[in-house]
Amino acid sequence: MSTDIAAGNRTAILTHVRKTLVELFDLDAADITPEARLYEDLDIDSIDAVDLVVELKQFTGRRINPDDFKSVRTIDDVVNAVERLMQR
């Protein structure tokens, strides 16, 4: 893991989340903006969200509490949740 990511670099986290969403769900990277809403804009359902959390667990190397992601609605919310995980 690079030191940028270990330090919780938001750009690195956003880049990883974008790459993951493109690979897992065949989304267009241009649609994955910080303001994009997971369910409404990107059509990510609850099963997809579980897959995303599993991948983020591997990315962070940390256990993820589902409550950390309950209020996640946008890509920016995902980045914030991952950043908080990295700071623990």
Rank of each mutant, 00 (worst) to 15 (best):
M1E: 09
D4W: 07
D4F: 08
A6Q: 15
A6C: 11
A7N: 14
G8P: 08
G8H: 11
G8A: 11
G8S: 13
N9G: 07
R10D: 01
T11W: 02
T11D: 10
A12H: 02
T15W: 01
T15M: 01
T15V: 03
H16F: 00
H16W: 01
V17W: 02
K19D: 00
K19C: 00
T20H: 01
L21A: 00
L21H: 00
L21V: 00
V22C: 14
E23V: 02
E23C: 04
L24I: 10
D26E: 14
D26Y: 07
D26N: 13
D28A: 12
A29K: 03
A30C: 07
D31R: 08
I32Q: 03
T33I: 11
P34W: 04
E35W: 05
E35K: 11
A36V: 08
A36L: 06
L38R: 07
Y39D: 15
E40K: 03
E40Q: 15
D41A: 13
D43V: 12
I44F: 04
I44P: 05
I44E: 11
D45S: 11
S46T: 08
S46F: 06
I47D: 07
I47W: 04
I47M: 13
D48W: 14
A49Q: 13
D51Y: 02
D51W: 02
L52T: 05
V53A: 06
V53Y: 04
V53F: 04
E55R: 14
L56H: 06
Q58K: 12
Q58E: 13
F59T: 00
T60W: 01
T60Q: 02
R62Q: 15
R63A: 13
R63L: 09
R63M: 09
R63F: 12
I64A: 15
P66T: 09
P66A: 14
D67A: 12
D68H: 05
F69T: 14
K70T: 10
K70N: 12
K70D: 15
S71P: 08
R73P: 03
D76N: 13
D76R: 10
V78C: 05
V78S: 01
N80P: 05
A81S: 15
A81D: 08
V82G: 00
E83G: 00
L85Y: 01
M86Q: 09
M86N: 06
M86T: 05
M86G: 06
R88T: 11
R88S: 14
R88Y: 09
